[in-house]
Amino acid sequence: MEFFTVTQSLLEGFAVTCLLFVLTLVLAVPLGLLISFCTMSKVKAVKGTFKVIVWVIRGVPLMLQLFIVYYLPGMLSPTGLNPFGQLDNFLYFELGIDNGGALIATLIAFVINYAAYFSEIFRGGIESISKGQYEAGQVLGMTKGQIFSKVVLMQVIKRIIPPMSNEIITLVKDTALARVIGVIEIIKVADMFASKAIIWPLFYTGAFYLLFVGLLSLLFNFIEKKLSYYKV
């Protein structure tokens, strides 16, 4: 019976982990694409600014970024109240959602952090496409948008799948950091058991991660196979 209740609790934590993972991924990909365009901009000021932003975000620990996103707005606000704390209360009392504010703060930090990493992968992918592909589109009268969406994009996607799968797998495990600002994800749940001297659930969480990452790996293999009909 104990195994069953622990599994059930861990599953609840794992749902938060999955939610964080999916939302970060869905939001960080478009933002990353936007940042990659900015770091490739011909306008030097834009390019420079975004290069510095990417440097800062990749140069500071994700855990520190979580703290900054969570605490800094409160420190800067004239009332001295932490807006995420207020959001926590609001969501809890109005909608019955636990730790909603912390979850949103985590999401903001994760999306920005992962968008920065993704942007560099996208930049590498886009810049690796030969000039001839753009020129072929141009002499055939295509617009810039058409060249990107119909000619370049699929080639970029094929190129970036291996580095992206690496980054996405890392994201699965980075979600565990969210606990430092109070998000109750799977490891936090296990840790609560540990504080009651039940240690084994901590080890048990590994199985959840392994299973999830295993499924993701299968998915990436499938996509790679699907795209193997052409060479870039």
């Binding site: 030969s130 001839g132 592909q133 020129e135 072929a136 002499v139 055939l140 009268g141 000619v151 699929m154 080639q155 094929k158 052409y230 060479k231 870039v232």
Partner: peptide
């Protein structure tokens, strides 16, 4: 598009 161009390296779209 008054001009058409055939390149040395073909530049076909691989996908």
């Amino acid at each position: 598009t008054k001009f058409g161009m055939v390149f040395q390296n073909f530049n076909l779209f691989p996908q």
